[in-house]
Design a protein around this nucleic acid. Structure first.
Lengths: 127, 127
DNA sequence: TCTAATATATGAGTTAGTCATATAGATGAG
DNA sequence: CTCATCTATATGACTAACTCATATATTAGA
């Protein structure tokens, strides 16, 4: 054991200690936020940081993800030169993006159910 | 878009399409199964393949994970030479392993809750 | 004796996400 | 005016967590 109890001071282990964020969790949030209203990266970064569940995302990851979304046709972007500060690249979700979000939600539901089944088995063994 | 709807025929995308397994999901199952009863790798592989939620795991990954668990003190192993076929390395969970499983479950619960909160937000926007 | 099942293991590659850092325009303090 | 800071986007290098392919050895059965 040693440091394994505590999340991040553990350099050698490859067995995925209970810490860190779930993978592939930010992306559906991005599409969902963009479904509510179009926004630029920095704005999305702000919104994600206001939600405890999505806090602390790496900006580099966010911007790259948005560009990838655009390459995949899930969003499209345009420059907003108005207002103060440097130009913003404003993202808008496409019909494909919304469709994709819907299918993503299906997988989220089934993953949630899977976690539930694990917990049931756990509880029938302990507690 | 294009192939993005369908899980795996998608070479370029980095945005995590709704497909594939959740990361870090097999490991708590391993500790849980070993809490129920000690077993060797091949046996665990069998049990995982009988559960739809954990089916299809890579044997190499399983064996490496078990060795890592042992290095971290979560399990301990001994050789079983009896019976037919080649020798089996039998794993037994340790007290640390069980403690670790409990803390893992805490994170699983909170991840499940997070998915729930995402779905709530999604449903308040669509459906 | 050849094939298949049981059993464990390693090397190489991929993917997703992190960390560090670069760049640049706008704004306010002194 | 100029320097620091905020806003905003972006890239390079790295790492962690798997996946894929393959190696190896023992035993059982056709």
């Amino acid at each position: 054991m040693r440091n394994l109890h505590h999340s991040r001071d553990n350099k050698h282990s490859r067995c995925g200690p209970p810490s860190g964020r779930m993978l592939g969790f930010i992306q559906p949030w991005l599409l969902l936020l963009l479904s509510e209203e179009s926004a630029h990266g920095y704005q999305l970064l702000d919104k994600l940081n206001q939600n405890e569940d999505t806090r602390g995302i790496d900006p580099g990851f966010l911007y790259r993800t948005l560009r990838q979304f655009e390459e995949d046709g899930l969003v499209k972007s345009s420059w907003d030169m108005e207002g103060r500060g440097p130009a913003r690249r404003v993202y808008e979700v496409t019909a494909d993006g919304i469709e994709y979000l819907h299918s993503w939600v299906g997988h989220i539901r089934s993953n949630r159910a899977r976690l539930g089944r694990f917990l049931e088995t756990y509880e029938s063994c302990f507690g």
